[in-house]
Design a binder for these strands. Structure first.
Length: 717
DNA sequence: TGAGGGATGGGACCA
DNA sequence: CCATCCCTCA
């Protein structure tokens, strides 16, 4: 059977497993997606299941699309009827189909996290809550964390005045969502979980339907997602879970690796298959990754190997400053480029977004095209959000969030006072802001009345119009176009608004069957669930810049991992978290395994961060890579400051101004020292004079210490 | 209403 | 250093 050709024995075993739940531990680059999609195709081709009996779930839209593309390529059937999508996408589908049973309006809207935050702020104001004691961002996190544990406000911990207040806010927030007919991301999951758990008929229906449930990136599932999967699995269904505990890097957003162990137990998994043959990287790179990750105590255990050769050693570069690091990187990229390696085949990775600035500066000066991943995406842009708010209001009068967003944008002279009166009227009449407008008199009533009349007209005129025309019409009549035309830097925004019309047209075109009057709502859901790629320039040959997190799942011929310094990578904050350092190490593991044949690891002795120069020691992760696998591009002086590299233009380099000043009894900032107990460190700051003098020293993994000069036994390194 | 000053704080991500 | 928020003032 051609489907199974070229699979290795473990992959073959995984693809053709009998009908039992199974866990596939798939190492980086081991053909995880291939196994998952081939499994689906094989199940269908052998008549084990019909397409309608398959549910496959992922985390990102990109992964879901990739999955569908691959399945279509393998099977000559339509993928319609198959449920393939993200957790949120599938929950949305479920809730749309059973909105009544779920207690939702038919046209419920989806809030993205920015929408959610502004709703939280509004609720806090309405309750007269002190925003210093209850910061909106924290409240938002509290609500989401509870929902992701499956807890409603009534079940939230309330053991003192403070936590009771939190629970009250949570309750008020949920009530407001219900009133407005809006649903946040976590709510999509929780609501559909509750729907299935309370409604036996529905639950049994779906359990009988989905015989095969397949889960991608299983290590990233949170508790609620796990329970959701469990609920959906009937006696005649099995789960095929694919994941890699070593690539679990999302604990901070609720991912629970423990789900892998729970899964083995709860589903009596007899088959744990390890995919350890790596088809991506050379041996030295894999050996480095294996050695690094072996420092983690919590592991399910796996060793990547390759049939390819050892390849080159890993290259380590030590720079004096972040500026020199960036400059070196640019030159190296140019050299690789001259040797025939395309720029798009080179990935530049960093731990935090703030690092991209100096890299961009150096690349820009060198004239190297690059593309930065991350940042604002299309549907999150301010002008697009405004346009979407008008569309939401056209779709539903209950949507107070949308109302408040655009009631005075473009400016119509409706200020805070008018809105306060309106909110009071709405509360009294127990109705939405939109519907409360007729109760208001006076000047405020007139301005608001005109706004409501405009929306009503738009709604009426929208009947019978195609979606793109509705959008176009709204842009003109709302005054959005005029507003940005008048703005001096509004050209980009106008372009984005035009792009929104195109997006609507494309959306209509991609619909398999027309959904007529619900098309607008479907489009709005699409906008919330799929915020869209943020930039053009996909096709051009540009260097790829991104955080290590967003590099997960990608691969490059050559990879630069920059900023390998204690405090940055591993990140300072990870010290205070359970399992923090291990997660950082897994992140480093992800970074290393992105490279096919060449891997650069670089760090800087001092770096500008938050406006001041910081003196760091090399990341412990560098020490965890066996010396035999690496080649130092800079002399391995270890502790000595490097000689100043000669640069064509000095302005490209951030040379620390603090360096020449602040010397203290023979010690100076930036100097490397050795302490009897703490080992090697760097002097970061000094304080006091004479016998009281103290030095602040960064001892890397031993932490930052203030030491009294008189007592500390320091020697120059 | 909006421009501008001053304080503040700063990890990573997707839906 | 930088972006963001809040407040003040014209």
């Amino acid at each position: 059977m051609s489907l199974l050709a070229n699979l290795n024995p473990e992959q073959l075993a995984a693809v053709t497993l009998p009908n039992q739940s199974a866990l596939i531990l798939a190492g980086a680059g081991s053909g995880k997606t291939r196994v998952l999609t081939t499994r689906i195709a094989w199940l269908i081709q052998t008549g084990n299941v019909s397409p309608a009996g398959v549910l496959a779930v992922t985390f990102t839209n990109k992964a879901a699309k990739e999955m569908l593309t691959r399945i279509s390529a393998m099977l000559p059937i339509s993928t319609r009827g198959m449920w393939v999508g993200t957790f949120h996408g599938l929950c949305n589908r479920l809730l749309r189909a059973h909105f009544r049973d779920a207690g939702l309006p038919q046209l419920f809207q989806i809030l993205d996290s920015a929408d959610q935050l502004s709703l939280v702020k509004r609720v806090l104001k309405g309750m007269n809550v002190d925003e210093d004691r209850f910061p909106p961002k924290q409240v938002q996190h509290y609500i989401n964390a509870n929902k992701e544990e499956g807890r409603r406000a009534s079940e939230a911990e309330a053991y003192d005045e403070f936590s009771r207040r939190y629970a009250e806010i949570y309750a008020a927030y949920d009530e407001q969502c219900q009133r407005e007919g809006v649903v946040d991301f976590a709510e999509l999951l929780l609501r559909s979980f509750e729907l299935l758990s309370k409604n036996e008929i529905l639950r049994e229906h779906y359990r009988a339907r989905f015989h095969h449930i397949l889960v991608d990136e299983f290590q990233d599932t949170n508790r609620l997602q796990y329970r959701w999967l469990k609920l959906l699995t009937g006696p005649g269904s099995v789960i095929f879970a694919v994941g890699d505990d070593a690539q679990s890097i999302y604990a901070f957003r609720g991912a629970n690796v423990g789900n892998m162990a729970d899964f083995e137990r709860d589903f009596h998994v007899e088959n744990v298959i390890r995919l350890e043959q790596n088809y991506r990287s050379h041996g030295n790179i894999l050996d480095a990754a294996n050695a690094l990750i072996s420092n983690n105590r919590k592991r399910l255990g796996k060793n990547l190997w390759t049939a390819a050769g050892h390849g080159e050693p890993l290259r380590i570069y030590e720079a004096q400053t972040d500026g020199y690091e960036a400059h070196w990187l640019a030159e190296e990229v140019e050299a690789l480029n001259r040797d025939g390696l395309a720029r798009r085949e080179i990935g530049v990775l960093y731990r935090s977004n703030a690092q991209s600035r100096i890299l961009e500066h150096a690349l820009f000066s060198a004239g190297i095209p690059y593309r930065v991943y991350g940042g604002l995406r299309f549907f999150e842009r301010m002008e697009v959000k405004h346009a979407l708010a008008y569309l939401r209001l056209i779709a539903s009068s209950e949507d107070d969030s949308a109302f408040l967003r655009v009631v005075n944008f473009p400016a119509r002279g409706i200020g805070a006072r008018s809105l306060e009166a309106l909110q009071e009227a709405a509360r009294a009449g127990n109705t939405s802001l939109y519907n409360a407008v007729p109760q208001l008199g006076g000047k405020a009533g007139n301005a608001l009345g005109a706004f409501v009349a405009m929306i009503a007209t738009l709604r009426k005129e929208a009947e019978g119009l195609a979606l793109p025309e509705i959008v176009e019409h709204m842009l003109a009549k709302s005054g959005l176009l005029a507003h940005f035309q008048a703005e001096k830097d509004g050209a980009d925004r106008l372009e984005n608004l035009q792009e929104l019309v195109n997006a609507a047209a494309l959306f209509v075109q991609e619909q398999e069957e027309p959904v007529a009057q619900q098309e607008l709502t479907a489009f709005l859901a699409h906008a919330a669930l799929e915020a869209g790629e943020h930039q053009a320039g996909e096709g051009s040959d540009a260097l790829q810049l991104m955080t290590v997190h967003s590099a997960k799942g990608l691969e490059f011929q050559a990879v630069f991992v920059t900023g390998l310094e204690e405090g940055l990578f591993p990140h300072e904050q990870s010290r205070n978290e359970d399992d923090g350092l291990e997660e950082e190490r897994r992140l480093m593991y992800v970074a290393i395994t992105r490279a096919r044949s060449r891997l650069y690891l670089s760090f800087a002795q001092n770096r500008m961060l938050h406006g001041q120069t910081r003196y760091n020691v090399a990341s412990r992760f560098l020490d965890e890579i066996p010396a035999g696998l690496v080649k130092w591009l800079t002399p391995r002086l270890g502790s000595q400051p490097l000689p100043q590299p000669v640069l064509a233009s000095a302005r490209d380099a951030a040379i620390p101004k603090a360096l020449p000043r602040a010397t203290q009894m023979g010690w100076r900032i930036g100097q490397n020292v050795v302490h009897a107990k703490f080992g090697q460190g760097v002097i970061v700051d000094t304080e006091g004079q004479g016998p009281d003098a103290r030095l602040q020293i960064n001892f890397g993994r031993q932490g930052m210490k203030w030491l009294a000069l008189e007592y500390a036994k320091l020697s120059a390194a």
